[in-house]
Amino acid sequence: MKRKTALILSSVLLVLLAIGGCNGGADDLAPAEVREYEGENLSSINDFRENSIKGPQYVDINDYQLQITGLVESPQSYGYDEVISLFPSYKKVVTLYCVEGWDVTILWEGVLVDDLLAAADPMPEARIAIFHAYDGYTTSLFLDYITDNNILMAYKMNEVTLPAARGFPFALVAESKWGYKWIKWITEIELSDDEDYQGYWESRGYSDSGDLDESFFD
């Protein structure tokens, strides 16, 4: 009888292990991606692990508008093409470190968040930018950090347009921050003076600063 119980428990353990081992990896997304940039090896855009709160979002680009709201003198609204054509683009290789333990080094191309915000004329009391996503996810970053680090809002990775699973149309490249700060499917950037604002994971016990050199627990 005891042997039977042990066998059943072992089987349950094996099934759980099998489930744990199934990575749920994404399908091949873009064969044309570059894997090396200026001598630096890059990860593949398929090397990410899907862990968004509601799964990949499929944004209809014809209806898409990026809103710049909150403590700004002139709120703005841009279509996808407008963002790309109105603001200068930049490239940089940045590594995303996920709290789950994996990381990816990618060549990102996008516009400076600082440029987007400057066009909306931020009020002097604005301290943080709250990023809103299509799936309801939110996170925030201090404006000083965004300016000092030339933070990008990317529309390309490894020379390929961001796939839906990676945040099309725009994803944040929050370098030197844990992965949960790298918000995908950005729809709105809201400026605020509420320095204690907590985004989706931050309100669930993860660090507000999200700095890589600190623990990701509060």
Binding site: L13, L16, L17, G20, I53, E100, R204, F217
Partner: peptide
Amino acid sequence: LITGLGITYYGAVETISFGLLTKN
């Protein structure tokens, strides 16, 4: 194993544990 799955499959584990075992 369960807490490991609670990190990677947080949605399912949180539901199964009636919200007790959150990702954090």
